[in-house]
Design a protein around this nucleic acid. Sequence first.
DNA 1: CAGGCGTGGGC
DNA 2: TGCCCAAGCCT
Length: 353
Amino acid sequence: MPKKLPLFTKKLIIWYLHNKRDLPWRGKNDPYFIWLSEIILQQTRVAQGLPYYLKFTKAFPTIKDLAMATEAEVLKLWQGLGYYSRARNLHHTAKYIHSELNGRFPPDFKGLLKLKGVGDYTASAIASICYNEPTAVVDGNVYRVLSRVLGIDLPINSSSGIRVFKELAQLYLDPEQPGTYNQAIMEFGARYCVPKNPECGTCIFKEECVAFNTNSVSELPVKLKKAAVRKRHFNYLVILSEDDKTILNQRTKKGIWQQLYEFPLIETSEELAIESLLSHRDFQSFSKKFEIASVTLYNEQPVVHKLSHQHLITKFWIVETNTIACDGTPISSIKEYAVPVLIENFISDFPAI
DNA sequence: CAGGCGTGGGC
DNA sequence: TGCCCAAGCCT
């Protein structure tokens, strides 16, 4: 005997069946494609992730194809999408599943959760969509919809909030069609119960939504503030050598843009004028290896590249040298390297490259 | 477990 | 412009 569903659940699923978008991973239940789409969509809007999903499924039609690729190929394809640890974990997990699990995904939530890059949300999504396992997802959309409809002002980034919203999501889940329910509540949050100025007047939950009926939609969900953004000053040395080469370094330390490439970087606590650059310790050691002909500032106004947690105030210095840079990178092959958007924007804008 | 991790869009 | 937010995860 099926359990009686809450009215919320029924209305939500009916809304979804009439309003869902036709997305390429919808209607599939192959865990490879669902996993791939879920990793791409972590903290990422559909509009931004969709072209990457198409690129990846074309380049790697099976998990074996992904496992056989190099990390450099995967990162290059991921370039521009951000949160690059997702790409490294994706590749790591593909290789692991291919070689250790005979190409088959773990068959349940618990097993999926052990995969690198797969947390509570992603394991729930794959388990519910691919295996019909009744595990509720809790993402930003779920927090927003539940906090408003139920009128809950518990901070969503507190440990108690995380626990309570997970329990509520599970309570309203349709155990007969968990995948449909999970996608329905996320789609509703993404398309109707949006963060700012939702159209509450025509909402299907107008009658029962606590936030709407107490005029507190704009106050929910509650989120505790995080630390302020940090400012960093980046000085990139764009080397142009006699033999049309430049220098690219790979960022190997932990921190932003791990494994991606960039020009030689001098980071300082304050903005640098040309005199300070020329006398800087790192520049001095650089000039011992190269015969420097000229140094000019490319952008008079520093480029401010904004990450979610830091602002990178950036100057690009064009350094012409008379040196034959035998271990340099040919300028013509720069585009083969995975670089951050900050660097990609410079390259696109710079005539000599 | 608080902080780190990208980029782009909306208002 | 500045700030928030987005189909979160890792350490």
